[in-house]
Amino acid sequence: MSINTSFPKGVIKKISGRCIVLHGDDIDTDRIIPARFLKCVSFQDLGEQVFADDRTELKGMHPFDITSNKGASILVVNDNFGCGSSREHAPQALMRWGIRAVIGQSFAEIFYGNCLALGIPCATTSKDMVNNLQAAIKHYSQKILELDLNRNSAYFNGVNYPISIESGALEMLTTGQWDATTQLIAQKDSLERVISRLPYLNNFEDKIKTYPRN
């Protein structure tokens, strides 16, 4: 297991690190962290349990066990990664193992949002690009990948792989506002306004009884 004590914080524009490749489409969050490890009131120990069952099955040959992958921080996956359960334990487990960014063909929506809330960008690229990148990493596993969010690029072994990050996520990461709580609380007046006009919070009073039409 990689020891990585510094979790993401503040402005996130560039992430550099060695890569770890995980092949397969539709890898669900039950596989990332099996349900029995959700019996906890803290996320603290999840790093060691990431992909627990897949790792047991592969007897030391799973990418998260292979010695040369130790210390890697950028995970490169295929299609629909993180589907299924909404458990944030999945990105928490990846983060605590040492992952700081994920690149893949596509991500399940809840997983994508959960990663964002931890300051972990999920960057997408085409199927061909993912395949090329995964192949390149296989040959040059010790090289560093440089992910530049503002430039939409992943630079690896002399090749620029175009990536994309959804605009809202990009803004939040690059301005350091991905920990949303503070800005949500700041909108107190607007929240009050919404509450005051929602019929189900106001006994369905006459004045607001139908959907307002402009």
């Binding site: 809202g168 996520a169 803004e171 919404v194 006009r197 929602l198």
Partner: peptide
Amino acid sequence: LHRVADLPG
């Protein structure tokens, strides 16, 4: 009806 604010990005 439930939109509170538009956020950057």
